[in-house]
Design a protein around this nucleic acid. Structure first.
Lengths: 121, 121
DNA sequence: CCATTATTTCGATATGTCTGGACATATCGA
DNA sequence: TCGATATGTCCAGACATATCGAAATAATGG
């Protein structure tokens, strides 16, 4: 008997489904950007941190650590991941580092993925 | 001039920012649904599996395992997570289990989060 | 300088996730 | 019922992430 995955010589299986065979190829740009976002927002603590912001608001690490149940250093770690994912932006002013939501970019990426979902999936 | 969000030492700190203090409270419904999706799509292999589908297409586990670089049991594991997250749906027909993208629901959830992002963040 | 404050980095440990092979279950046809 | 096929589950090792406190870094004011 043929091993799994091997094709029956009489039938070309490729004609039987249109499956996207690009599995190992590059992921579409809009998904690649979103990939980091998914990863960042997949964690409940990071999600809560993001939801701590009011519209247009900037918050520093101490303020975020204050409402969080985590240690300051841990909050700092999560903020770093959120910033690297593009979810948050930050600016250091004096001793403090202020964070805010990268709203425009985030909205754009979400819309791109939604569009890709609509048209290509 | 003081940067936005910076505090005056003479005045009660609580009056200077509207930070959402509901950190430890319930996460909004649209984010709770999205939470699992984020987690599921945060993994590159799972993302590739999802992107393997052509519009409206149904694929079974063997087909998905075939294009994947992972062992069949591993693919099965990832498919389970994607199904539990609501990204994929499945139906068993005979010996085979067919998977497809839960497009309508997924689109809806993405739009809900985008709306929440627009209006509340 | 020195002390203070805000934040990040480091080190250690705990916890969680990914992975593939072995095994179990389900379905179908002979 | 038996054998083949398709899928799911369990397990254990490898690997990654989360967490905290302590130490290090940076900025400020005296």
């Amino acid at each position: 008997m043929p091993p799994k995955g091997q094709l029956d010589e009489h039938i070309d299986i490729s004609k039987h489904f249109d499956m996207n065979r690009n599995y190992s190829r590059a992921i579409p740009a809009e998904w690649r950007a979103m990939s980091k976002v998914f990863e960042a927002l997949g964690d409940e603590h990071r999600q809560r941190l993001v939801l701590s912001f009011e519209p247009g608001e900037r918050l520093n690490v101490s303020q975020l650590a204050e409402v969080s149940t985590l240690a300051r250093s841990t909050v700092s770690h999560h903020l770093k991941l959120l910033r690297e994912a593009g979810v948050l932006e930050s600016e250091k002013i004096g001793k403090e580092v202020w964070y805010w939501i990268n709203k425009a970019w985030l909205t754009q990426v979400f819309e791109d993925v939604t569009e890709h979902l609509r048209k290509r999936l």
